[in-house]
Nucleic acid binder design. Structure first.
Lengths: 168, 168
DNA sequence: GCCAAACCGTTGGATGTCCTAGTATATTCA
DNA sequence: TGAATATACTAGGACATCCAACGGTTTGGC
């Protein structure tokens, strides 16, 4: 898949849009398509780094979230909200992490509907080691200049707030 | 899933990183996570717009690519390279599009290994209508200011070039 | 107090992505 | 020319996401 192209396919798409009389939306189309492609590249790097640990990004995110939680455990629903994924995706991730002995489910003490998930000792250890790997192999050299990192955080933060992700 | 949070979960993650002594990679981590989440939001909008046409984004991209090709047909391999996805993903998309009568496969006239894909009349019509829908429902109001759109194109373009997507 | 409505997590199904391996065809080079 | 290598597509499997629907629990209004 590591196909190098002579020219930027997104710039080509933008030209196509302009030639068809859609100049007014050509630039946003290009920006949105670029976000898609960038996500794909970053995800591939992250997954490659996590592979030796037997983790995927989805599972790593859950592990990391749990490792930062005060009480050491979270309701499924809370994890779903914080990770911004569908509840069934959390069920799926927890199933696999539990089978691997990295997290454990337990009933909520007062609410019979709720299931709590908590890290096991092994899960906490793996969270620490895989985070160290991501820090040194991906985040330390993200492919954006420091100035661009700040711009991205600002631009995408505005976008997410506007999309209703959070209030602030 | 449309859960609104009181605070920005990515900003929280950044704080967690900083508290754990990873200040040097906290900002890039936040930027990369923001790209992930932004892609997720944009993809959801696009899929919602395409749903009435019976299309997914993956299939739409292939339809659009074919509609802009000079000869009206492309080898599978070429489509895979231009869309930057794995060849098996193209096979998957073509299978479904072909079953829906939107594209047709044909053997390459001189290279027996190659399969060409071309739009049917119905496929061309659907490409036109679904593009119009995306233009008016998504790209016309992308959630980025015009200035930010230009910044994104520049920043992500640099990133993709650096990642080896294209030469230029 | 009780029943309807809301809520939580899970199951099953559809779709997409990637990887590995297999088959068929082209190309290269000794 | 014939064998080794490279290329193109496809089949099968693992994993992720979402949606729709179901069963159990809690809550709220009468």
């Amino acid at each position: 898949m590591g196909t190098h192209l002579p020219r930027d396919p997104i710039a080509e798409a933008r030209r196509n849009w302009e030639e068809h009389g859609w100049e007014d939306v050509a630039a946003p189309m290009a920006a949105i398509t670029a976000v898609m492609r960038t996500q794909q590249i970053l995800l591939a790097r992250i997954e490659a780094t996590l592979k030796p640990f037997g983790l995927t990004f989805a599972r790593y995110e859950l592990l990391a979230l749990l490792s930062f939680s005060r009480k050491g455990s979270l309701p499924m629903k809370k994890a779903s909200a914080l990770l911004q994924v569908h509840p069934t995706s959390v069920t799926n991730a927890v199933d696999r992490l539990e089978r691997a002995g990295l997290v454990a489910r337990s009933p909520h003490p007062t609410d019979g509907r709720t299931t709590l998930i908590a890290l096991t000792g092994e899960g906490r250890s793996l969270a620490r080691r895989s985070t160290a790997a991501l820090n040194s192999e991906v985040f330390s050299d993200p492919g954006f200049s420091p100035g661009d990192v700040d711009l991205l955080i600002r631009i995408l933060g505005d976008f997410r707030r506007n999309a209703g992700d959070f209030a602030d």
